[in-house]
């Protein structure tokens, strides 16, 4: 189900791009892939938002930010939360993954590599600070539900890893 395409009106993209994830401000909601649908009907915009994690507290903030951003253009946002199909890290845009890495969060690896990393079988999440592959997981749960905490054995810096969710 992770190939589901988002249905977004092209002329809304510049407005939606203004809204970012409150926890990872370099990522816009479009980079995150949490908007599954944004369709204009008259002066209303119907948005379907899908959470990255069920309990993600950023969802309410994102919904409010979307309403505020559209209100600036005299548009009224009607936001609906949808759970199905469930969000997947495959929906993160390539640009988003690059921005994430530059920001200091290691982007999700492929599912199989991720599993090995989280089970402690191999240290293959490269350090976002120095690029070293000699890193280890400190905790499966980092500062937010979507991240795990890693530390680099070379430069000693701790860094977040955005967990793979398929």
């Amino acid at each position: 189900m992770n190939t589901a395409q988002a249905r977004i009106d092209r002329d809304l993209i510049p407005i939606l791009e203004q809204v970012s994830d409150p926890e990872i401000p370099v990522l816009t909601v479009l980079d995150l892939g949490v908007i599954r649908e944004a369709v204009k009907e008259g002066d209303e915009v119907h948005i379907k938002l899908t959470p990255t994690y069920s309990g993600c507290p950023a969802m309410d903030v994102i919904a409010d930010d979307l309403k505020a951003a559209l209100a600036k253009h005299q548009l009224k946002a009607v936001v609906k939360l949808v759970l199905s199909p469930a969000w997947s890290t495959d929906w993160l845009s390539e640009a988003g993954k690059q921005k994430m890495e530059a920001y200091g969060i290691a982007p999700p690896l492929e599912a199989s590599a991720d599993k090995a990393a989280l089970l402690g079988e191999a240290a293959i999440v490269p350090c976002t600070n120095c690029g070293s592959k000699s890193t280890r997981m400190i905790s499966q749960f980092g500062s937010t539900a979507c991240k795990a905490l890693f530390q680099c054995d070379d430069c000693q810096e701790p860094f977040d890893y955005f967990k793979c969710l398929k």
Binding site: M1, P51, Y53, S54, V82, L83, S84, P85, A86, W87, L118, Q140, F141, A145, K163, L165, K166
Partner: peptide, 13 residues
């Protein structure tokens, strides 16, 4: 079904 599909991913962790 939708809640469960979402939950599986989290509960695995």
């Amino acid at each position: 079904r939708a809640i469960a599909a979402k939950g599986i991913k989290e509960v695995s962790y």
